[in-house]
Design a protein around this nucleic acid. Structure first.
Lengths: 343, 343
DNA sequence: ATTAGCACTCTCCAAGTTAGAGTGCTAATA
DNA sequence: TATTAGCACTCTAACTTGGAGAGTGCTAAT
């Protein structure tokens, strides 16, 4: 579904006007701000065509036009690769801020999401590397207190996770050693999600396990692996609320509810493919029902070639896509660079 | 400033009515719901007295009365120790939920705040033990990657914190050993906040430090100690928004802004004294300006006799104090019990 | 193919009106 | 003296009304 050049220009004009200030865009406004040498009447005709094609819609008769999700999609797809001056300036502001992160690799993501939200005035999110595909190299069980043990998962060169778990009976250090030997023998060298699957199976077949050692080990592993270990950082709710788009309180309710359940957001971001580059989900394109009112601009960051975590921006469908894409893209590149270079 | 019995009853009545549904309470409503054998005219006179005393106020002439913060304070102070039936029932529902936590000591606080918000329909918060007063027993510096080192802080029997930090020059393992020896010699055995203070001093006097080893060590410590290490969990924003109190969007803006900066909330909760029992800050009593529109019900939980972290509920000043106190109190006791018993 | 002009539609806002709730006061009552 | 009934008064919230403004769609002219 392609448009002739002029219609495309007008669609762009309408969208840009709508982005810069909400409220239906009228034909006269277009002629004023984008002097294409056409009268408002002509614009009207074209806008009427665009509506028929599904790019625009009218909230009610005799109001201006508002972009549809399809319209935004067209707009985003035709966003030229070359950055506008404003975006270039933005990128330089970012690099200043990002440089401060170099020092403190650990709180990277928290800072990143905060920066994204500050600069965009939308919601910034960032998710730590998902360790599902990490190879488990060792597991260590340490007595901690009566009825509690500390479990530490190691990957090749780093601690994946450490957690304190309660157990039924008190266990001696030698009990724990036997347990961890068993677990290591059985699981080390496999990826976390594989281990997780195997364990679930094992539990399903629990009846045939007569050895209580094994069943205890299984249960411990399940507990440790159960938690989703991705840290997720969300910030900028207050920025978002300040937008005129949210004068209606009900839209916020839904959003808040959704954001509060971090699992939902994690699930959403897992759907981001590992493909290079920044991806844009506009309103109804969003894989998550709860998010169909919003748009998501997201990108993976990597270490070398291995995709790690995700960062992104959530905003209203009436979002400054060009800016958001610049923000997300630059940040993802930067994190990738640091992770890869500091290796 | 004490009240004669009858006035007290009427103040209680007004507050209870106001808590159960917002909007000014009129004299007739009181006579209807609390048949004290008085006519509305008498109630009117008494309410007028209560207003003069500062317990109630009138939003405008010829509207009903609304409790002031002073009024709530009176109400909370006279809340009888015996629990109402509803609160007792609530407590039993809680103990069921709380029992599920036994298994997973690690994600205690997250769950606790979620439960508090679910049951109260206000905002639940919980803060992990503040390690400021923890005694540092060892610090360990481990080479991690080029230009990065892992720093691990140990207390007597547990890891306080581990963090990855970037350093200017590449450092060999032996460099790091020398560094950590220096740090351990200098700081181990002191509490974290003492160490923090000393380090800040040292940095202030930096000019007289000629030894680059020492100055590098100082800087590393500062970076590790800089972050506030308390985890804070906040949940229930969406619950809160559903209250009729927040039909006005502006009150939410402020709240959101405040909650988003976790440091503010941490600072607020640090003001909770270590005294036993649940404390209530009503509206303007609140030590934090940003929170003067809200009430806070909070309590410390302990391990044995040592105060650890804090849990609490943030709600509108028109809050169900009786219920909130039950919730916070029960939860704090439960956590204390588990921490102490599982020792 | 484009444009000017005009009738029509819809929203937004401000002003006016009414109904309802609640008070304060005064005079009557126990 | 404490309480109550009754009434006038006040204030708000909700609804109506009537432009003003913005924008469209259509038609006829260019």
């Amino acid at each position: 579904m392609s448009l002739d050049e002029r219609s495309g220009q007008i669609l762009q004009a309408v969208i840009q006007l709508y982005i810069s200030s909400p409220g239906p865009v009228g034909s006269r406004a277009v002629t004023k701000k984008f002097p294409l040498g056409l009268s408002s009447a002509t614009i009207r005709n074209i806008m009427s065509d665009l509506e028929e094609l599904g790019f625009l819609r009218q909230p009610h008769t005799s109001a201006g036009r508002v972009p549809t999700d399809v319209g935004y999609r067209f707009y985003v797809d035709t966003l030229t690769a070359e950055k506008s001056d404003a975006d270039a300036e933005l990128a330089s502001e970012m690099s200043r801020k990002l440089d401060l992160f170099r020092k403190d690799v650990d709180s990277f993501l928290d800072n990143a999401s905060r920066m994204l939200s500050e600069l965009s005035h939308y919601i910034g999110i960032s998710v730590s590397p998902n360790s599902n595909r990490t190879i488990l190299s060792r597991i260590e069980l340490v007595p901690y207190r009566k009825n509690q043990i500390a479990v530490v998962l190691f990957a090749e060169d780093t601690i994946i996770r450490s957690k304190i778990i309660s157990v039924e009976q008190e266990m001696s250090r030698s009990d724990l050693n036997r347990l961890s030997d068993y677990i290591n023998e059985r699981f080390s060298g496999y990826s976390l999600d594989l281990v997780r699957k195997t364990i679930i199976e094992e539990i399903a077949n629990e009846r045939i396990i007569c050895n209580s050692l094994i069943s205890e080990a299984t249960r411990i592993c399940r507990d440790v692996l159960a938690i989703s270990d991705s840290d997720i950082f969300i910030s900028g709710l207050s920025e978002m609320i300040n937008l005129p788009d949210f004068c209606d309180i009900n839209r916020i309710r839904g959003l808040l509810k959704t954001l509060e359940d971090k699992h939902i957001i994690l699930g959403l971001l897992e759907k981001i493919s590992d493909t290079d580059g920044t991806q844009v989900f506009i309103g109804s394109e969003n894989p998550l029902d709860e998010m169909k009112q919003f748009s998501l601009v997201a990108a993976r960051y990597k270490e070398g070639n291995r995709p790690m975590g995700t960062i992104g921006i959530i905003g209203p469908t009436r979002m400054n896509y060009s800016q958001a894409i610049t923000l997300v893209d630059t940040t993802a590149r930067f994190i990738t660079e640091i992770l890869t270079y500091n290796r």
